[in-house]
Write a protein that binds this DNA or RNA. Structure first.
Lengths: 146, 146
DNA sequence: CTGTTAGCGTTGACATCTCAACACTAGGAA
DNA sequence: TTCCTAGTGTTGAGATGTCAACGCTAACAG
């Protein structure tokens, strides 16, 4: 192992293996959690991400604020909102300049209210219940740093 | 907090917040790592995932083995291989029954060889270098359990 | 031989993500 | 005024992911 940091990962594994393991865990957990929670309410993962962010903000946000809060590209937000507006989960209206404010509809609010306890339960069952308190502490500290 | 496991996450945060933080970290790291490594070689992330798995197996695998190794759906493998075969990264041929064996081409082998050091460096810079030895140990143990 | 079952892969439709190009508004400089 | 620039959002094309339906081959039972 010629690089200075290689030893941290052990002599038999490369960083790319650590990366693949991380990707695999994310994929498995995502599939299980969404299957348990979102599908029961007829919501996809991106639906849920948008609705949760709007709900946390009180029900309305500008698209650029939504993009910043989620770390999403502007076009990704735009496409997703177009699909969600078609299903009456949100409404959009210009609010000064080129800015657009997104607002939860009654349907959207009902959907996020219904799915939240399911999502909490799914995350517990598939993820946090399988971790010790010390592991959760470590993960949270790592998440906050990234 | 009325549930037995709620206390593990602290009184001010729900499991769904822990889940969102995990998703966010995965998304940010994925974007950075792929931007650094794969794009430099003209490979997408799914390209790279397939090529790495084939390379590790010696250059050839049946589609069902590939699906099992990656935890992917059969149709996802099929669609992705169709795109990759079109770019001459792999070849496919029936090998008994309905089974199909996927083989790395010279181009595919060259691509994965070229990108691996870039990928290792990107994972180190954006991920493992920002973790302590103890954190890496904890994460690896969590990954193995999931 | 005929039908059945199981395993493996493909296809088409649709949802999602990314990128480049474009359009609109506001504000300031010439 | 006219031009330029920054900020914001939209659109279309192509790549990717997911789901349901289908086709093919082998093995086996009748």
């Amino acid at each position: 192992m010629s690089t200075p940091n290689g030893a941290k990962l052990g002599d038999t594994s490369e960083p790319v293996d650590f990366w693949c393991a991380f990707k695999r865990v994310h994929e498995v957990l995502r599939t299980r959690v969404i299957a348990d929670a979102a599908e029961a309410a007829g919501l996809s993962e991106p639906d849920l991400t948008i609705l949760a962010s709007l709900s946390r903000a009180g029900g309305a946000l500008r698209q650029s604020e939504l993009a910043a809060a989620l770390g999403w590209d502007r076009t990704r937000i735009s496409h997703q909102l177009t699909r969600m507006a078609k299903r009456a989960l949100v409404t959009r209206e210009r609010t000064g300049g080129a800015a657009v404010t997104v607002t939860l509809t009654a349907d959207g609010r009902a959907a996020v209210t219904a799915v939240r306890p399911l999502l909490d339960a799914a995350v517990r069952r598939h993820f946090t219940d399988r971790l010790s308190a010390r592991e959760i502490e470590t993960l949270r500290s790592v998440f906050d740093r990234m």
